[in-house]
Amino acid sequence: MSYWAHFRVWRGDSEKGELVDYPAEVNEGEVVLDIIHRLQQTEAQDLAVRWNCKAGKCGSCSMEINGRPRLACMTRMNTFAEDEVVTVTPLRTFPVIRDLVTDVSFNYTKAREIPSFAPPEGVEPGEYRMQQVDVERSQEFRKCIECYLCQNTCHVVRDHEENKEAFAGPRYLMRIAELDMHPLDSADRQTAAQDEHGLGYCNITKCCTEVCPEHIKITDNALIPLKERVVDRKYDPVVWLGNKLFRRGEPANKNR
């Protein structure tokens, strides 16, 4: 039940590159990553590709398949017609290193800009008490395998290189949401989400949610709730007035 598929794989580096056609044998049950590996073993031994677990758990083999950001290990070949050309390119938002491998350091830079978990004062290790219902929202976000497909597909940086400076991207805005909803985190994050990490750039067009291989509802459960929390702090006149009059300078009421 094997057949020959028509693959077009982008080969090149930051200097130059092109789509190269390869005929590739496809067997039943295979995924795109299998075909890439077969090309490595046969016609393109030095074809660069990044991969690890091949089970959708590590988020390494992110690439664009027929123009859609996907994990190659989770894209089954039977989702394509046998006569369909399968075009595989590197992620288009990050600088390319070689072939299908991109330099994703943008994401590590952004990760470092998000203030880390701030442990509650005076609570010793072993004394943390949290209810399951209180940790569940943050747990959803911690399912993230950091494949960066959301970072790659988000038009804010994909189409506008100049926004990379100001915009943390869905993955790291979700990280802020995760920490802001953490029942024991003691830092104030809401104002900074808007002022320093570019939450306002998000126009909730949901492409991050569409591409998430972990099916995390990034927009509905992280970004919009975070926007609403920012409204609580920055754009709610009642709260603003209250802060001016009564609680001036007091840190955010994280204990609600």
Binding site: P119, P125, Y128, V135, L179
Partner: peptide, 24 residues
């Protein structure tokens, strides 16, 4: 091992919980 797990919570880990709020 228990100390190492508890320490992870101070780093921000979120394990599943028991009814009384401890690590399940």
């Amino acid at each position: 091992a228990p100390d190492r797990v508890w320490e992870m919570e101070t780093y921000g880990a979120l394990f599943d919980r028991t009814k009384d709020g401890k690590i399940s």
